[in-house]
């Protein structure tokens, strides 16, 4: 469960990073792969947000399992705090996670897990980046706040996908222990949202494809409402959908405390 907590909070970050308020137009001729990835990483979002997200897991026989989470987050300069609760399935309903995330890479994030059956809050550690979260096709690393300089980036080309102009950027990890040999992203130029991502295993074989769709403005922010990760090798699929989200709603600081987590739910 500790891993679940970490990744859920990373999920919140993921959706934050694909929300953007101002279209950005730039000439790819002036940009490197790193420049583009920095823009994707650093684009502004709201000061806080609250939403509901559903994850649908589909196995190769078509059997579906669903999880729903409520998430809240708030920025504190370059740092942020998040709190997340499972709303379903019933066996984990009320399980909550609190995270204080720091921009300083030398400072570990602080994380807590609340287990309603045990009435207990646990301090939790970081988890293996290569583990899959909650049976989904997303690893911690897929969802986490990966530093731009953990990879070498190369702008391969510009490409039109169904009328959307994209930069195609290939990223290769500097750390040879990473589970992917490379990741190729098709980044929508006007919104700086990756609409397609290919993940390759260590043998350079295609492992997974992520398709991002239903991109529209919510409260003035571009938001991707649907992400579909297709695990080619295992014939397993995960669909993440934002069911509800609001930005800049003035969330109180006292929501992001252990005492709130221990109540098991948020009004």
């Amino acid at each position: 469960m500790t891993k679940k907590g970490f990744v859920l909070l990373c999920l919140v970050f993921l959706f934050e990073t694909i929300a953007y308020i101002e279209p950005v137009y730039a000439q790819s001729a002036e940009l490197t792969g790193r420049d583009i990835m920095l823009k994707v990483h650093d684009r502004p979002d709201g000061d806080d947000q609250k939403g509901v997200m559903q994850m649908t897991l589909i196995n190769k026989r078509g059997k579906m399992r669903k999880r729903t989470v409520l998430f809240l987050s708030k920025d504190y300069g370059k740092d942020s705090k998040s709190i997340t609760y499972f709303q379903s399935p019933a066996d984990v309903k009320g399980t909550g996670f609190l995270s204080w995330e720091y921009d300083d890479p030398s400072k570990d994030d602080d994380r807590w897990l609340y287990l309603p059956a045990l009435k207990k809050t646990r301090r939790i550690s970081g988890s293996s980046k290569n583990d899959y979260f909650m049976g989904t096709d997303f690893t911690y690393d897929d969802l986490g706040d990966r530093s731009v300089d953990e990879d070498n980036h190369e702008l391969l080309k510009e490409e039109d996908i169904d009328g959307i102009m994209c930069w195609v950027v290939e990223s290769r990890p500097k750390n040879k222990d990473d589970m992917y040999s490379k990741v190729i992203r098709w980044i929508q130029q006007d919104a700086l949202i990756p609409i397609k991502v290919e993940f390759y295993d260590k043998q350079d074989n295609l492992l997974k494809i992520l398709i991002v769709s239903d991109i529209r403005k919510q409260d003035g922010f571009w938001t991707a409402f649907k992400m579909e990760m297709d695990n080619i090798r295992e014939k397993h699929k995960t669909i993440l959908e934002i069911k509800e989200i609001h930005y800049d709603i003035g969330l109180k600081d006292n929501l992001f405390r252990v005492s709130t987590l221990e109540r098991g739910k948020i009004k």
């Binding site: 570990d108 602080d110 994380r111 646990r122 301090r123 550690s125 970081g126 988890s127 293996s128």
Partner: peptide
Amino acid sequence: SNPWEDFV
């Protein structure tokens, strides 16, 4: 309770 990398 004191977390450190993969340990607590």
